[in-house]
Design a protein around this nucleic acid. Structure first.
Length: 293
DNA sequence: AAGCTAAGCAACCGCACACTG
DNA sequence: TCAGTGTGCGGTTGCTTAGCT
């Protein structure tokens, strides 16, 4: 796999790493730790640039790398996070222990991007569509039927939106509860395609967060969410970066004051469904622990 | 069996940012 | 303040291989 050694510009090797190079790199990192990649190359005599050493370690040699197929749970999570973050692979990878940004990026480019595109055209295709046959180590995984759990991801969002001031957050259909829909934002995010009422139902609602705020949320360790005051979580979800309510006031107006503010239990389920509504898997376990209160 | 094609993925490249002197 | 260096990240390349004809 990969590239063969070829260019020796500046006396540095390029291309695929040999077993010996890997061993040298592993030994050095074990004794000296990560970092100082440029020094590593000099000290070990490896004819590799620092960047190459770092990349090899991060993407392949690290002991906590999880090899093998992307599970259904992981795939769903990747799609949701990509919906939220766009091509910010390192952030997405940070939510998937053992997975590298490069791996996720490759997986997306070779499979998920097409899958999400295929999901857009018609409601029928969404429900009836099965995964295309792809080459993976365990074909049973590849041939699993699409579960439609990503209905919330069926609203197309241009990557450009990531660069805008606010980050639109789509939650799963199950979380509509008493949240208000921001229809103008939804129509903007649907890339010009007229949304049907069904699609509007699918589209859920949008929380306006600044990218920074949302990244802070992602950077927190969800496995330790039990430590988080759920009221704080609630505030994160409904307040903008200035601390003012964004959606709820509008909701109250539109509904004639009938709607209540989302209660804590709703917020918990909403937040869980944002990341994974699966029956099993490591994250599910973590979430169950985190929200067991 | 041979040639072609597309998928998968390791690795490279360029840019941006952080840190340091 | 600024230049140099190190590191991280996203986009892209190109080799290998499985599947198809």
């Amino acid at each position: 796999m990969g590239r063969n050694p070829r260019c020796t510009k500046d006396g540095l090797n390029k291309g695929a790493w040999t077993a010996l190079e890997d061993k040298i790199l592993i030994d050095h990192v074990k004794t000296h730790g990560e970092g100082k990649w440029s020094n590593l190359a000099k000290e070990t005599g490896l004819k590799r640039c620092g960047k190459s050493c770092r990349l090899r370690w991060m993407n392949y040699l690290r002991p906590d790398i999880k090899r093998g197929n992307i599970s259904q749970d992981e795939e769903e999570l990747i799609m949701r996070l990509h919906k939220l973050l766009g091509n910010r692979w390192s952030l997405i990878a940070g939510r998937l222990p053992g997975r590298t940004d490069n791996e996720i990026k490759n997986y997306w480019n070779s499979y998920l991007a097409k899958k999400t595109q295929d999901q857009i055209p018609s409601p029928k295709s969404r429900t009836d569509q099965k995964k295309p046959t792809i080459r993976v180590h365990h074909e049973s995984d590849a041939l699993l039927e699409g579960k439609g759990v990503l209905a919330s991801a069926q609203q197309h969002v241009d990557d450009d939106q990531i660069h805008e001031t606010k980050v639109p957050i789509f939650l799963a259909p199950t979380v509509e509860t008493n949240m208000v829909k921001n229809k103008s934002s939804i129509s903007e995010s649907s890339a010009g395609s007229p949304s049907t009422s069904k699609e509007e139902n699918m589209s859920d609602f949008i929380l306006d967060l600044s990218p920074d705020d949302f990244c802070k949320m992602l950077d927190s360790d969800f496995a330790k969410l039990s430590d988080v005051d759920i009221n704080e979580l609630h505030n994160i979800a409904i307040e903008d970066d200035k601390g003012s309510l964004l959606v709820l006031s509008e909701e109250t107006e539109n509904n004639g004051g009938q709607s209540d503010q989302p209660n804590n239990s709703n917020m918990i389920s909403d937040f869980k469904s944002l990341f994974l509504d699966t029956d099993d898997g490591w994250l599910r376990d973590d979430l169950e622990i985190a929200f067991s209160d």
